[in-house]
Write a protein that binds this DNA or RNA. Structure first.
Length: 450
RNA sequence: GCCCGGGUGGUGUAGUGGCCUAUCAUUGAGCCCUGUCGAGGCUCGGACUCGGGUUCAAAUCCCGACCUGGGCGCCA
């Protein structure tokens, strides 16, 4: 849990040199001289005895001051420290059944490293709630609350689990540019930026670059990075800056990368399942069983039709259609065999070069959580001719994709891949309704600060 | 962009024309209290988003702006 510098820090309290985390101290530390440092979470003044609850990353330590036992000056000073101030306290550990963690600290010295102004923008103890907007405005303080803190520790665990899983399977982690030239894959709007004397954009996804790496012979790559979409959407499931996990694998089909995806999801759940902080979210996590159910686009439409929700073939699923399907299926599932018309130009058509096959269907899939779409992917077009034709038939200019198309002219293996939204995975896993809750400093249509 | 809600102390709220000198909780200031763990008791402080309008009278009704919650669309 810790890796604290043992070196003396200039201009800082000597009390933090041998700082311990609250949960490192136990009743068995009875009699030990320790120091703790953190935020003044709560103060309880009972007159002759005064409790100061210090909060640090690990949890809480109770500091107990008896009138007449500790120095009067220290007693008075401790009572005056405003809540949420940062303090360092040195004292003796005392085993104490009446204390929350079975021990308390009888202080000998206390330094206030930074006194907090009053009144606080929100309550860190959780006694009085605050609306999300208020919390995001004072995010630095919201992050001090147990619930919010643990969301982000879990987020870190999720990302580590993803890396562990993919590294284990021989994937190479890559970093592709976030400043890109005009070529959009279509669909979403891009954020224009000024790039010296030219116009450039923030990337909407690493799609084109990860595919180019297949032509480079990297075979299995992944990237975890921000993506930017300039859509004026206004929902609890969309952000203008999000984090995407993207993979691309050569010499495999969409079926293989679907397996990788469901195994990854199950692994992530299992890595989060035992995390003690889940209790702060009032959540019991069940690891989903794999393989996930697979339904085709046609079957989805059929299911919807049975509930009276008519989707015309070739139309994308509406929000309510997704919700209805989610209610019917009730667990993670794939939708496969999408019409090419509603999938990007790089999705491989089923009928490519094959007479008599179903027309206009792609080897494309979406991974759905009952409440939100999590990922989408496909077998990719690896024929230069077909790709060029697809780009043009989507009304895009092949010229602006030259840098990308070139990699298909000199040896591009068959390949497949997907993109997974990290925030969506987190919010669905933790049963959080608003995507903003799982991003430290979310960017939406209205919010650019903090 | 469209539709429907909502803006009251720092925070979360009650209040739908006069009973508002605006409720309650929490926070803040202070006092009492030697085992709190949502401590308890007492005192005090602190608010009707802004601008117009209707009315004898507006937190309350109407209009506009801004902010905000949800749904839809767009989108992943």
């Amino acid at each position: 849990m810790r890796d604290k510098s043992k070196g003396k820090v200039e201009n800082m309290s000597s009390l933090i040199d041998n700082r311990k985390y609250a949960t490192e101290i136990t009743a068995d530390s009875d009699g030990e001289q320790v120091s703790v440092a953190g935020w003044v979470h709560e103060k309880r003044d009972l007159g002759g005895v005064f409790f100061l609850i210090v909060r640090d990353l690990s949890g809480f330590a109770q500091v107990t001051l008896h009138r007449g036992v500790v120095e009067k000056e220290l007693f008075e000073r401790a009572k005056k420290v405003p809540r949420e101030s940062v303090v360092a306290i040195e004292g003796k550990v005392k085993r104490e059944k009446k204390a929350p963690n079975g021990y308390e600290i009888i202080p000998e010295r206390m330094e206030v490293l930074n006194e907090a102004s009053q009144i606080l923008p929100l309550d860190t103890t959780g006694k009085v709630g605050a609306e999300l907007d208020t919390r995001l405005d004072a995010r630095f303080m919201d992050l001090r609350t147990e619930r919010t803190k643990h969301i982000f520790i879990i987020r870190s665990r999720v990302l580590k689990a993803i890396r562990d899983f993919l590294d284990e399977r021989g994937f190479i982690e890559i970093n592709t540019p976030k400043i890109v030239s005009a070529a959009t894959e279509g669909g979403t709007a891009l954020f224009p930026i000024s790039y010296f004397e030219r116009e450039a954009f923030l990337n909407q996804s690493p799609q084109l670059y990860k595919q180019m790496l297949m032509g480079a012979g990297f075979d299995r790559v992944y990237e975890i990075a921000p993506i930017f979409r300039a859509e004026e959407h206004d929902t609890t499931k969309h952000l203008n800056e999000a984090t995407s996990v993207d993979i691309e694998v050569a010499f495999v089909s969409d079926k293989e990368v679907m397996s990788i995806l469901e195994e990854l999801i199950a692994f992530v759940y299992s890595e989060v399942e035992g995390y003690p902080g889940l209790s702060k979210l009032n959540l019991k996590l069940g690891v989903p069983k794999i393989p996930f159910r697979r339904i085709t686009y046609d079957e989805a439409i059929e299911l919807l039709s049975e509930t009276g929700e008519e989707i015309e073939w070739g139309e994308d699923l509406s929000t309510s259609a997704e919700r209805t399907l989610g209610e019917i299926i009730g667990e993670l599932y794939f939708i496969t065999d999408w019409p090419c018309a509603i999938k990007p130009f790089y999705a491989q058509p089923v009928d490519a070069g094959l007479k008599g096959k179903k027309e206009n269907i792609c080897y494309a899939f979406d991974l759905m959580h009952p409440k939100v779409e999590l990922a989408s992917g496909s077998q990719r077009v690896h024929s230069y001719e077909l790709l060029k034709r697809n780009i043009e038939s989507k009304g895009l200019s092949a010229d602006s994709f030259e840098f990308y198309l070139d990699s298909f002219r000199f040896g591009m293996p068959p390949h497949a891949g997907w993109g997974l939204g990290v925030e969506r995975l987190l919010m669905s896993m933790l049963e959080i309704d608003n995507i903003r809750e799982v991003v430290l400093f979310p960017r939406d249509r209205r919010r650019l600060a903090p």
